[in-house]
Amino acid sequence: MTDTLAGHADPHLQSGEPLVEMRNVGKTYGAIRALKGINLTVRAGEVTCVLGDNGAGKSTLIKIISGLHPHNEGSVKVDGKEVSFSSPRESLDHGIATVYQDLAVVPLMEVWRNFFLGSELVSGRGPFGSLKVKDMKRIADEELRKMGVTVKDINQPIGTLSGGQRQCVAIARAVYFGARVLILDEPTAALGVKQSGVVLKYTAAARDAGLGVVFITHNPHHAYLVGNHFVILKLGQAVLDKKRSEVALDELTRQMAGGDELTELSHELQQS
């Protein structure tokens, strides 16, 4: 599976170079503040883990990088240039691919059409160029097999696959098209132990191929297996921002479980 990643990764990536830099980034939806003062750097060849409870702002953070919602405070730089993506297309064109929590698949469309959706292979120019159907089917099938997923029929609607299989299609697609940065939004949340293992191997392989990986999860154990850098969000702000060498799994787990609040809670409970 590493061959896919190595094959599609941008060969000019220098390990450690900052690909995405967020400085003091904030986002408000009307009167609701979703994010405030976020500093995050995604470096080539590193996995940046973003942890947090539900509603902590994890999804908002990745929506800014993947172009679904523009930020409205601070600055986001990609490859050193200031950007404000107004559509996911722009983000994809910078080599940033995302596996969304809801997977972003169209249930009634065939597996191979979903795989290539938005990045179709065509012969001829213009919007009405002919699709290379055979190539697309072959590639989609090959890429899925590399992930250990064999669909019965590459022509079946993706809605007929199981949740785990759909997840794998979404990841395989992002790996295939994400040349520089790979964003995974809770990729292991819906998976069993074995498939989670496959996803984590992929994450590590993407890192080793030189990609910058953003791994969003609320499972500190999964994060610690692959992460180089950890950020914990709480109510839209970063409460922990440390390198792997500065933090132990215990601390991550404690922070995720509630941290100081948990200690306080235990005092309260003991008193009553």
């Binding site: 679904l68 996911p88 994809l92 169209v106 249930p107 009634l108 938005g118």
Partner: peptide, 10 residues
Amino acid sequence: GNADSARAVG
């Protein structure tokens, strides 16, 4: 089929 998903993949 799913406008949000379609937009998310470009």
